[in-house]
């Protein structure tokens, strides 16, 4: 099977789509690095650098996805599938080798955009898990596209649907993130002898919150938005978390302690999930990749090929 993987990977080098998307990714990388080095000052936050990174990665992911679709959409009519089967490779081997080659291709393209920006020292925290999550976004969407192309009789139709689904996941993920970010209380005011709590009518309580959180973690495109939100708020989060900790420790009485506790809880409820999601995303993404691969092999084996 190593031969097959090598051949499929080599095939990417011969395609104009590879050339075009690589050029685009290099351009995006240059923009990201220049912005990090020349325009962004983390102390003054003079420029929406994280928003720019979000846009760069979004454009790059969609470009890589488009390239994979263009390359794979007519695969069944070329020798890429039929010839190895006739030569004695199993359907599982043929599918898996293609799957791996697409993952490698998309990971390389993702690395072009991400690594230099990471190495430009603009991530103050978690560069490894961030880079891994973002690379996994590239790999997951590309793997999905390839699987759709190989399994459907009318790949063009299903690819258009896939594009729509992925765009829906991007916007849907943003919307879900907004819902989960809503605080439990619209206002918390310390009075002389009590605390006024104004409940937020738009707050989503458990168990719906827990279910939505799990669904949110399964969204393969969520890292695109999640890191932007996290990084934008990280510094103030660290500062504010310390502030609440100090306030709690210095509380004069139970009322002040409860008040500080409520503020801290509200703050953690808003920002801790970002951290938790970021820590868990690589596992969820890897699980998703394994599921797509395993499911793809099972379905491809049953497929009546021409």
């Amino acid at each position: 099977m190593r031969n097959l993987i090598r051949i499929h990977c080599k095939r990417f080098l011969f395609r104009w789509e590879t050339f075009a998307v690589t050029l685009l990714n290099i351009l995006l990388m240059v923009i990201g690095v220049l912005a990090a080095r020349l325009m962004f000052d983390p102390e003054t936050n003079n420029f929406d650098f994280y928003g720019l990174i979000h846009v760069i990665t979004l454009v790059s992911v969609l470009a890589v996805l488009t390239a994979v679709i263009f390359i794979e959409i007519n695969t069944l009519s070329t020798g890429a599938i039929r010839n190895p089967l006739i030569a004695g490779y199993s359907k599982g081997q043929v599918f898996l080798s293609k799957y791996i080659s697409v993952i490698v291709f998309s990971a390389v393209q993702g690395a072009i955009v991400l690594l230099p920006t990471v190495l430009a020292n603009c991530w103050t925290d978690r560069p490894v898990s961030f880079t891994l999550s973002m690379l996994l976004v590239y790999m997951t969407v590309s793997a999905l596209a390839m699987t759709v192309c190989l399994l459907s009789d009318r790949p063009t139709v299903y690819v258009v649907i896939l594009f729509g689904v992925l765009l829906g996941l991007i916007f849907g993920g943003t919307a879900v993130s907004e819902i989960l970010n809503r605080p439990q209380y619209q206002g918390i005011e310390l009075q002389e002898d009590h605390i006024d709590k104004l409940p937020n009518p738009w707050y989503l309580p458990s168990p719906k919150r827990d279910i939505l959180e799990q669904v949110h973690r399964l969204n393969p495109l969520q890292p695109l938005k999640e890191y932007q939100l996290y990084l934008e708020n990280m510094e103030s989060y660290l500062y504010t978390a310390q502030y609440f900790e100090n306030t709690l420790n210095q509380a004069e009485d139970d009322l002040h302690r409860e008040y500080a506790g409520l503020l801290k809880q509200q703050w953690e409820e808003r920002y801790d999930p970002h951290i938790r999601r970021l820590e868990l995303f690589p596992y969820y993404q890897c699980g998703l990749l394994l599921m797509i691969g395993a499911g793809g092999i099972l379905l491809f084996r049953k497929r009546n090929l021409k």
Binding site: I7, T78, G79, A80, N83, I86, K306
Partner: peptide, 26 residues
């Protein structure tokens, strides 16, 4: 070896390149 219905090859490659791919695959 088999040719099933229509021949399966890479259209963007020459005849020799297609054969090299096949050799590599085998």
């Amino acid at each position: 070896g088999a040719v099933v219905e229509t021949p399966a090859f890479y259209g963007d490659m020459t005849a020799a390149e297609n054969l090299k791919m096949q050799y590599a695959m085998l």
